[in-house]
Nucleic acid binder design. Structure first.
Lengths: 352, 352
DNA sequence: GAAGTGTCATGGAACGTTCCAGAGCTGTTA
DNA sequence: TAACAGCTCTGGAACGTTCCATGACACTTC
């Protein structure tokens, strides 16, 4: 008995510094646990006076309802997982903010998992979110194998923000229309008078491919006899070097470059400045994402903007519809828009 | 008929899709729930044959242990909260990565909450982490009222990464030694030959104050007769404009600026370029944080680097020590180091 | 053959919460 | 005054899991 009571005491000791439970509040307030439960959930069945008293006591004890116990009995957690690839990324931040705001409207809370640009980790993180009992998952530009997506989508509603590498039944998606973004970029350059426009890409992901394809199509329809110049995605550094070399040679060199994203555009800008290429006089550059670096660079970067917060909003709302019982798949798109800044100008200025 | 029954079945499947419980597995395998519990946790007390049989059945049913129920009875969740102010921030990303790696070593999982630079939200997020039952919290540069920190620290171990605005008993912290960083920056500039060095700051937060104070002290000890020039933190844009104006006038203008962080440095760089100030010839600039923008800018930014991942590591390890029973407070510091890039040069070059 | 020692397996008691049926009131109506 | 209705409030039964005491054997040892 004494031996077993020792461990019992150890356990109990641990319990004494545990968070206060509904029982503690009930005891301190002199009411039943049921009354406390009703009071803190703002349900009726308890008088206003009692409610205030209970809330005051709860506040004083620092009581916080235990989500696990609640979800255990209710059978739902009120948790939504957000899986993102890179924490330090303003695109992900903004989409997440949108998801979060929409979630708050439906009394859902966010749990964030991040894959750190590592596929294994991404999957592990997704597993972990499911183990936490999220009721749905929003995946932000995170490339997870389709087979795995399918498996997850069978268990909980799943919404992907961004392009899907391939069609996966049973899940929703919201993406910006990369074709429109790419076309807007090229149109802008064409209107300025550019004819020799190159594309610089650093990835073979679905979004990148879409942009590249749209670029090619657009260029071919404008100048059918010329093969559109696409650099990358392999050996990005070499591709950048080559572009800069071309521009310095000034022989049939591109006068403008549409890049796959702002990060790559920033690298190109840096390489140009290092090589003494005058921007935007000698080369116009258009980015994609309208991220915070656009305004840090000089010249400031013209870029394609996606309605990021709105996309997050839409993603969560679709997820909510699924929770409500929708079974058919839904794939939404939003139109990106071009934000013109100083990195693009007319090629007429190039030989002045 | 067949169409409607399909959807009906699909729906029903989804509802009764409620994950199988340990009871279901026990029933299907013809053993007690206790046996299943032992088997899936790989504990002894069950024969190898039975275990294999149970695991096979569990696998077939797609059984996944319910984390909530487990943590409810075990009294621990294995969860650690990370509270950060801004998702799209590489400093936070790196610290979080460090925390995460260290957590994995101790079989702890991360739950990320983010305050989106809003104090109310920050507190709500912290509340929510506690409600989830995290066993400890790491707060990354998130300014939460000390009274609130104190309240939280009474309930769970709390580690702050970054400077504390004031001493709060019962919690740990890990911070970079801002004095050392500031001094390294100024020393570097002095060694290059600068004498008129200004400081540009945009915040009154504890880290910013520390850097500012160290800057003042260092400058006073070097040139006691001159009042150190500090611009900001109010009206940052005006402060930047004024600095640029001074440099263009070239009358007793600062030849170098040490900024509170990279973001502010980037703005200064942009303003200089816009105004035609040649960098680094006319003005040397040192940032703080060694963030990813340093290498995007031209000239590339000399900056003070903090061992971010290591700080995250240390933070979680301290938290783990607390969980193990340590009661005395611990405040660690790490030494930052200067990363020299192209934004700093000798003032001798300035009038060439 | 009794006692002791393992191993394997079991059912009941927690854990902190919500839900539910119902108890005790007070007031209203027939 | 009986019947009823409407509030408050309550204790017990879930929820899915782990922990614990104990039972049922099969061996060994005295």
């Amino acid at each position: 008995m004494s031996a077993s009571s020792t461990s019992g005491v150890a356990r109990r000791r641990r319990r004494s510094d545990r968070s206060p439970t509904i029982h503690d509040v009930a005891k301190a307030a002199g009411v039943s646990k049921s009354a406390v439960s009703l009071a803190i959930r703002n349900q009726k069945g308890v008088s206003e006076a009692t409610r205030e008293h209970i809330l005051a006591v709860a506040q004083e004890l620092g009581y916080r309802s235990n989500v696990w116990a609640r979800s255990l009995v209710q059978g739902r957690t009120g948790l939504v997982g957000v899986l993102l690839q890179d924490l330090g990324n303003s695109y992900h931040r903004d989409v997440t903010a949108g998801v979060e705001d929409a979630a708050a409207e439906h009394d859902l809370r966010l749990v964030i998992g991040h894959g750190r640009r590592d596929q294994k980790r991404l999957q592990a993180e997704l597993d972990s979110l499911l183990a936490l009992g999220v009721e749905g998952v929003v995946i932000i530009s995170a490339w997870v194998p389709p087979a795995y997506l399918d498996q997850v989508a069978r268990r909980v509603p799943l919404v992907v923000v961004g392009r899907l590498p391939q069609h996966v039944p049973g899940l929703d998606s919201v993406a910006n229309q990369d074709e429109i973004g790419a076309r807007a970029a090229v149109e802008h350059l064409v209107e300025l008078g550019h004819t020799r426009i190159a594309h610089l890409t650093g990835s073979t992901g679905p979004a990148a491919m879409q942009r590249r394809r749209a670029f090619r199509q657009m260029m071919r329809s404008l100048w059918p006899e010329v093969e559109p110049q696409v650099e990358g995605p392999d050996q990005l550094q070499a591709a950048i070097k080559y572009l800069v070399f071309q521009v310095r040679q000034e022989v049939a060199a591109p006068t403008a470059v549409f890049t796959q994203n702002d990060r790559i555009a920033a690298e190109l800008v840096g390489a140009c400045i290092d090589a003494g290429v005058r921007l935007p006089e000698q080369l116009s550059i258009v980015g994609y994402d309208n991220s915070s670096v656009c305004r840090m660079l000089r010249p400031q970067l013209t870029s394609v903007d996606q309605p990021r917060v709105k996309m997050g909003h839409m993603a969560l709302n679709m997820l909510f519809e699924r929770l409500g019982g929708r079974t058919e798949d839904k794939h939404l798109t939003v139109a990106p828009s071009l934000v013109v800044r100083g990195s693009t100008t007319s090629p007429a200025l190039q030989h002045t």
